[in-house]
């Protein structure tokens, strides 16, 4: 459906997107995962024809979107990270305006507004002014404004930033429901759990580049067998770091404040040795957490830093 080839976007000397390539298949939820500043939003801006690329090609259903922007614009819905609404107008007036811009009028517009209100769960408050809405309601209306014209491809840029867990869950369920109805979705987030929950295929971006791509399982496979053990100690000293680090079977180890993170092939084999060495040193162990591999671990493995750094 959408094919991105060697896309580059630079602002002066800053290379925001550095030659990325990926493909979004019809009917999937495609995730763009990466920390703030990774280049996700710039990529989204280019895909939505808001910014011209410095280099590269983006094909939508085989057509170059920069040569034929109308080809994608009418079939594309974009949910920006920021609330792009008119606060002094009602929810209904906002939806009506955005529907008009996509060519909807009269009964068709009214019908679509009603349907969208159902999807985003705002039917009861739709006549209220937007500045009277909670953060979560604004986020949902922000999504609704992109759904009116029933886009084939929906791009959602960090749609859950800064909202309560209940609204967040509602949005995630909405995304899955839209996908079930056949909508193709590109979902960007720096929340690993959301991408894991929603996306069938994922690109992990960092510093303008795609550092890994594939299904969640494929990505986790990159660090297969790698288990993470998180130890929280009473106090930290070089002696204990040295003692634990000398235990056989540990692949890598980092420590910060009172915490030690260990990556190893088989936690069961070495966990007892680790606990014994800490106890022998006279230190006290506050907690032990054995984590299975996830996207956070993948990102950490690939970049040496956490997603939220």
């Amino acid at each position: 459906m959408l094919k991105v080839e060697n896309l580059q976007k630079n602002f002066g000397n800053i290379m925001a997107v550095d030659g990325i390539s990926f493909e979004v298949r019809k009917g999937e939820v495609f995730g763009l995962l990466g920390p703030n500043g990774a280049g996700k939003s710039t990529t989204i801006s280019v895909l939505s024809t808001l910014l011209p690329p410095s280099d590269g090609v983006v094909l939508f259903e085989g057509k170059n979107i920069f040569e034929e922007p109308k080809a994608i614009q009418s079939k594309l819905g974009v949910v920006p990270q920021d609330i792009a609404l008119y606060p002094t107008l009602s929810g209904y007036e906002n939806l009506s305006f955005w529907g008009n811009l996509y060519g909807l009028t009269g009964r068709e517009l009214k019908k679509r507004i009603e349907e969208v209100c159902e999807i985003i769960g705002l039917s009861e408050r739709i006549k209220d002014r937007v500045d009277k809405y909670s953060g979560g309601m604004k986020r949902r209306l922000n999504i609704g404004a992109a759904l009116l014209h029933m886009p084939e491809l929906l791009i959602m840029d960090e749609p859950t930033v800064g909202i309560d867990p209940q609204s967040r869950n509602h949005i995630l369920d909405t995304v899955l429901e839209l996908n079930r109805q056949g909508m193709t979705i590109i979902y960007t987030s720096h929340y690993m759990e959301e991408v894991e929950y929603l996306c069938s295929r994922i690109c992990i971006m960092d510093q303008g580049k795609i550092i890994a791509a594939g299904s969640k399982d494929e990505l986790v496979e990159m660090i297969s067998g790698k288990t993470e053990i998180a130890l929280l100690l009473e106090s930290m000293d070089q002696e204990i770091v040295k003692t634990v680090g000398s235990i056989k079977g540990i692949d890598s180890m980092v420590h910060q404040e009172n915490q030690i993170l260990i990556r190893c092939e088989n936690a069961d084999m070495i966990l007892a040795d680790i606990i014994a060495s800490i106890t022998a040193s006279g230190n006290h162990l506050r907690s032990v957490d054995v984590k299975k591999p996830n996207l956070e671990a993948v990102f950490l493995h690939l970049t040496g830093k956490a997603l939220r750094d």
């Binding site: 801006s45 808001l50 109308k70 009418s74 594309l76 974009v78 609330i83 792009a84 955005w98 811009l101």
Partner: peptide, 13 residues
Amino acid sequence: ESFTWQRMMVAGT
């Protein structure tokens, strides 16, 4: 500043 400009542009305005 309210990002509605960008949204209008995306809508083909």
